[in-house]
Amino acid sequence: MATIQDFNGVNPTWCSGCGNHGIGIALKLALTQMNLDPSQIAMVFGIGCSGNMADFINVYALHSLHGRAIPNAIGIKLANHKLPVFVIAGDGDTYGEGGNHFLHACRGNHDIKLITHCNSLYGLTTGQTAPTSQKGFRSKSTPEGSVEIALNPLIIALYSGATFIAQAYAGDTPQIIEILKKGIEHKGFVLINILQPCVTFNKINTYQYYKDKVYKLPADYDKTNFDEAIKKANELSAERYPLGVIYETNKPTFTDQLSQLQEKALIDKERFTDFSDLIKEFI
């Protein structure tokens, strides 16, 4: 059985106090506790501080381009749907550069676990405004304050067809582990939006900020109730951040619905050789 050491790559280079440390450890622990080993997992990493985790964790990994991790993950899943596929990317990567892919991946209910490190700015490029920054956020790219309102990823995922939508907080590692394990067990498109203070550049969304504004969903919260989930997701615009599984429903995944994949994974199938059957179409 794999231990957390088996998953350890090179030592993380994240800033001291960065929320990524907690997320990274939580992820490795969740995988270990789910009895998975590094050879049984595929992960695609975006470009940004969170994507740098590619070097810090041992799995079959693809360190992608900025914004393109989701379609890479869809490709991996189509080729080998028996492999659990994860996407690790930031909020700028997922909701900005890759926004279109995010939207359509929800629609397809692709069986991918998308773990977004949401620090509400662009950390690796030294702190510019992100799609999730609050309106008025001052940064190097918006010195007079951003004009746009913050994007609400939970609402988009809910309305676009994602079947598992959760929110976690980098300051609460045990809860991240718990949500990750539920997400790994879920079949279908999983969004886990992890709120993560950037200690170096974000002077607004700090640990102190979140401490006052996050709360755990109560034990009797009905995660299968779509309307309730919309209400919870909408709280983001009032800067209230519910933590936990906000919505879960069971629907066939994308690959479940492809007749080609009913028996074997695409890469494990025998080569098709009845070419005469195709050639006759042209005579």
Binding site: R68, P71, G75
Partner: peptide, 22 residues
Amino acid sequence: ISRHAEDEIAVINTAIGSAFAG
């Protein structure tokens, strides 16, 4: 599998993913 993705960026990145996977 003939995959009609949302745009050509997704198209090629999907193929890169599947080629990576073998």
